[in-house]
Amino acid sequence: MIRRLLPTWARAVAGGRLEPLGWKAHGLRELDWRSWPARQTAAVEAFVCAWWADVVATPEPGRSVDEVFEACASILGTAAPLLERWPPGPVTDAHLVSCADGWIDDLLRDSLPFFHSDDELGLVVVPELQAWPARQAPARIEPHDYGLAVHAGLLGLPEGERGGRLH
């Protein structure tokens, strides 16, 4: 039944017609969609990645970029494909600064920076969100917010070393 409703849900989500509660706590991840037939699995992943690529490249998307990132990472069970699709550029870097500003405190404490916390998701996503900004984000964030860029660079250090450098 869910597979039949998914196209309608995807159009509503991408079109901004669902309230956050209607898509953030969607439960699609719990459906084990990766066990579906290959064509359907590929369609779900393609939709999520296309939705993310569109939102991150849009100057003023209908949904906040961090909310869409959270929903997409939750559906995929990983942030890696989203981070790979976060290219440098004026619009995408502005979104990066905004997201990093909201996420940095949690990430520095090794916590998942999402509204709907999930321990299993956190075990995968937190290290991804720490490694990528430590390598990629400081140079992209620095022109906008030097202090945030320094903190993003600290994410590459073990937690014990981060604390001493934060003060």
Rank of each mutant, 00 (worst) to 15 (best):
D54F: 00
A134M: 03
T78Q: 12
P138K: 04
D110N: 02
E120D: 13
G77H: 05
L6A: 15
L96Q: 04
D145V: 11
W51D: 08
L76V: 10
W33Y: 14
L82E: 14
L121M: 07
L107A: 09
G102V: 05
V150I: 10
R162M: 03
A152Y: 11
V13Q: 03
A43R: 14
G16V: 07
L96I: 11
A149H: 11
V150T: 10
I75L: 14
D105K: 04
G77Y: 01
M1A: 13
E45I: 06
W86L: 13
D145S: 12
S64F: 15
W33E: 10
L6H: 15
G153M: 02
T58Q: 03
G122F: 06
A149M: 13
V48I: 15
E30K: 11
D110K: 01
R109C: 06
A38M: 01
V150F: 04
G160W: 06
E142V: 08
R140N: 06
G147P: 04
R3L: 08
E120H: 15
E45L: 09
P127G: 08
R3W: 04
V55I: 14
D32Q: 01
E161F: 01
I141A: 09
V124G: 09
S35F: 02
A14K: 04
C49N: 12
W33F: 10
G147F: 12
A71S: 09
T58I: 04
F114K: 06
G16S: 10
A137G: 05
P61C: 15
V124M: 14
A131R: 12
I104E: 09
P143R: 05
F115Q: 15
W86N: 13
P133H: 15
A100N: 01
Q40C: 09
A57S: 12
D119N: 10
G122E: 07
H95E: 06
E84N: 02
R29I: 05
P59G: 01
A12R: 10
P61N: 12
A73S: 12
R4G: 14
M1Q: 15
L107F: 09
W132V: 13
A131W: 06
E159S: 14
R34F: 02
P20W: 06
A100V: 03
P127K: 07
D145Q: 14
R162C: 03
E60I: 08
G160V: 00
V91N: 07
L112Q: 14
L123Q: 07
L129G: 01
L6Y: 14
H116R: 13
G15Q: 07
D101L: 13
R135T: 15
G153K: 00
W86T: 11
